[in-house]
Structures are given as C-alpha cells and as structure tokens.
Amino acid sequence: MAAAAAAGAGPEMVRGQVFDVGPRYTNLSYIGEGAYGMVCSAYDNVNKVRVAIKKISPFEHQTYCQRTLREIKILLRFRHENIIGINDIIRAPTIEQMKDVYIVQDLMETDLYKLLKTQHLSNDHICYFLYQILRGLKYIHSANVLHRDLKPSNLLLNTTCDLKICDFGLARVADPDHDHTGFLTEYVATRWYRAPEIMLNSKGYTKSIDIWSVGCILAEMLSNRPIFPGKHYLDQLNHILGILGSPSQEDLNCIINLKARNYLLSLPHKNKVPWNRLFPNADSKALDLLDKMLTFNPHKRIEVEQALAHPYLEQYYDPSDEPIAEAPFKFDMELDDLPKEKLKELIFEETARFQPGYRS
C-alpha cells in the first residue's frame, strides 16, 4: 500500500510507478496490472468513496492506442447498470505532455475469474450472474457493438453480487458484411471463450460470437473449470467437437473457408456428449439454455433477447427493466489503419471533457 500523499506533496508512487492523480484522489492501494497499465484503488475526496484507477501508458504502440481509444469512446457513450462506466479521466493539459491516461471507475471487490478459483456457486448465484451478463449484453448488442472478449476476468463483482462487464478494448461495431482481413492475426481474445466460426472463417462476425462466450462462462460457473481449455488453435476446435459432436452437413455448409471445411470433413465422426453427463448436478433449465448458447452453427445460436426470456431466468426476466441503447454506435473511421500519432490526438480530444474549465 502506498503511503497517503500529504496535501501538495506531488504524485504518489505505487510499486515504483508514478500515479499522478492528486489532489482529488489519494490513499492509493495496488490492485493489479494488465498488459499496459496498473490498477489501484484510491480515495475520492470529492465523492467520499474509494474508486478504481487504471493507469494506461499506450502511446508507444499502435495496438494499445487503438484499444484505449475504443474503450474510452464506447464506455463514455454507454450507460447501463451492468456495464462499468467511466467516472473521470485524468491526463496532462497538453498533448505533448500526455504520456499516461488515468481512467477512474467504480471500485468492484472482485471478478468472476477470482471468485470461481475459490468458491463453488449455488444455482441461485449462477442464475443471477447469468441474468446480469445477458442484461448488459442486450444493451451492448442493441448499440450494434460486439464485445468480443467476454470471459470471467472481464466480469466485475461486488459483495452485493452486482455484476458489471468491463474491458471493451477489443470491441467492434457489428459488421457481418465487412471482410476484416487479418482478423485472426489481430484477434487476441482469450482462445477458450472463442466461437468456432472465428477459427473457421475470417469473413465478418456477428453478435452470436458473444453468446458463445457467455455459454462458455455459464459452463464454467457450473463446474469451476473452463469447458474448452484448448492449448492452441486446432486443439481448441477438437475440444469443442469432442463435446458438441461432429457438425451436420448443414452446419458445414455455413463454413465459407474450404480449407477449414475440408479439415472438419477429414475428422472421424464424434457423438455429442449429453450435458447432464458433463454437469450431473446442474439445473435442467440451465443445461437447456447452455445447449442453445453453445450451438456450433452461429445462425442457430440463441440471441440475447431470447436467452433473457428463457425459463431458467424467469424469476428475473423483465423486458421493461432491460434497457437498450438510445442509438446504434458508430465509429467515424476504422481505427485499425491509423498511425499511433493520430490515435493519440483522438484520445486527447475524447478525454477533453474531463479537463478543468472544459467548454463543449
């Protein structure tokens, strides 16, 4: 834990890192770190609560700039109880001085990944967590956004079992017609939660990839272990087919990539493993919904509104309290091709509203 900075004593240090967030945020305490930044909790002297502050230093890398800009653009436009918001952003007053960006968010005690390492969940908890994931996802999908990296560590939890989806750095506007060349190379989302079509096709992607990830998360809540822990690309596919069985001819016809289709045709026939054999203690309604989410063919996979209306979630289902976005989200430009200098300018502009004396 960093010592509390005395008023006016300059930035606090946390594990050798400068955290320049005073005077409003003090009493910093280390939480963890990701690929390009550290997260601390801090005391907000204005709202009198502890908050989470993520320090991001992305400006050396085009990919990190892209992810940072995506996350900020999306989260500043989203407003939903099951999606983490941005409360404040701290950065230098000029673009030349801006080396880091500090993002202030609600402090959540833990995440689903940490929880599943230590606790076996009751059916009631599984049901409530799944409902909140789908409630947040309904809003995301209504904005025409794909999260693309749903996994237990991106689901934040607090002691009252509130759940918030975080990390929109890989999110995209849904565009089933656009052929994202190089899709697989830039697709760094965790393999275990990846839909089979991501490994088999490169053309376009749809909201059904997020539903697949939610199915993987439900299976993990039922058993405290990942359902498809593939060691590499082909191993991942083999794990999936080992449980779902061989795809039907109709399902194979959806695979545009001939090499991928021929690979699947070359494999020995596998039978589907019954879900109640894998999860003998699970609620039968939970397994019915799991089956509809972990469907090989993305066109037959359940959609988020149908999933919310499934009998497993009937005690929570309330369409009048499951809000959607006001308007579909649009990125003005494809960020993939922009140089990091341009992305830095866009991050600077996007964060201006939090600067003292800002006038829109």
Results as ranks from 00 to 15, higher is better:
Leu234Thr: 07
Leu28Met: 01
Ser320Gly: 10
Pro152Asn: 08
Cys40Phe: 04
Arg135Trp: 14
Lys151His: 06
His232Ala: 04
Arg359Ala: 07
Leu234Ile: 04
Asp337Phe: 14
Asn276Tyr: 01
Thr118Cys: 10
Cys40Thr: 15
Gly8Phe: 11
Tyr139Thr: 11
Ser320Asp: 09
Pro93Tyr: 13
Asp291Gln: 08
Cys161Phe: 01
Ser360Gly: 07
Pro247Tyr: 07
Tyr64Gly: 07
Glu197Ala: 02
Leu313Lys: 05
Lys117Val: 09
Ile217Gly: 03
Cys40His: 15
Lys114Ile: 00
Ile72Asn: 01
Tyr316Gln: 11
Thr206Lys: 03
Ile140Asp: 05
Asn87Tyr: 00
Arg172Ser: 03
Asn276Gln: 08
Lys114Gly: 03
Arg194Asp: 05
Lys55Thr: 11
Val273Gly: 14
Val101Cys: 08
Lys99Ala: 04
Asn144Pro: 09
Ile347Asp: 02
Arg91Cys: 07
Leu130Gly: 06
Pro229Phe: 05
Tyr43Met: 11
Arg135Asp: 13
Gln17Met: 12
Cys40Asp: 15
Pro226Lys: 14
Ile95Leu: 05
Lys54Tyr: 08
Ala4Pro: 15
Tyr25His: 08
Gly32Ser: 01
Lys114Ala: 07
Gly37Ser: 01
Lys330Ala: 13
Phe168His: 10
Lys48Gln: 06
Ser29Leu: 04
Tyr36Met: 08
Lys164Glu: 05
Lys203Met: 04
Phe59His: 15
Lys164Pro: 02
Val173Gln: 02
Thr94Glu: 09
Leu116Ser: 11
Ala286Gly: 14
Gly357Lys: 08
Tyr187Ser: 02
Leu116Gln: 01
Trp212Gly: 01
Phe279Ser: 01
Ser122Arg: 01
Gln105Trp: 10
Glu96Gly: 14
Asp167Lys: 06
Asn158Met: 11
Pro176Val: 06
Ser213Cys: 01
Glu81Asn: 14
Val214Gly: 04
Lys48Pro: 11
Ile243Ser: 03
Arg50Lys: 03
Ile133Gly: 08
Leu289Thr: 03
Glu12Asn: 10
Leu234His: 07
Ile324Met: 10
Leu107Cys: 13
Asn262Gln: 07
Cys216Pro: 02
Thr206Ser: 00
Leu137Lys: 05
Ser208Ala: 02
Ile103Arg: 03
Leu157Phe: 05
Ile53Thr: 15
His147Asp: 07
Lys207His: 07
Asp162Lys: 15
Trp275Ile: 06
Met108Ala: 09
Cys40Ser: 01
Asp336Ala: 05
Leu222Phe: 08
Asp336Met: 11
Glu322Asp: 07
Gln66Glu: 03
Arg79Leu: 08
Ile217Trp: 03
Ala260Lys: 05
Leu150Arg: 05
Asp175Cys: 10
Asn238Trp: 03
Ile140Lys: 02
Asn238Gln: 07
Tyr316Glu: 10
Ser142Met: 13
Lys54His: 09
Ser320Ile: 10
Ile53Asn: 01
Tyr139Val: 07
Leu184His: 03
Phe348Asn: 10
Tyr131Ile: 12
Gly357Cys: 00
Met333Arg: 06
Ala7Leu: 04
Glu326Gly: 09
Ser202Trp: 05
Glu350Leu: 15
Ser246Ile: 03
Ile31Pro: 07
Tyr102Met: 08
Leu241Ala: 07
Ala35Ile: 03
Val51Pro: 14
Arg67Leu: 11
Ala174Thr: 01
Lys164His: 05
Ser122Trp: 09
Phe183Met: 09
Gln62Ala: 09
Arg172Lys: 04
His120Val: 11
Asn253Met: 05
Glu220Lys: 01
Ile165Thr: 08
Cys254Ile: 07
Ser213Pro: 05
Tyr25Val: 12
Glu250Tyr: 14
Asn123Glu: 10
Leu115Cys: 12
Asn82Arg: 06
Asn253Ile: 00
Arg172Pro: 04
Met221Gln: 06
Leu121Asp: 03
Ile211Asp: 01
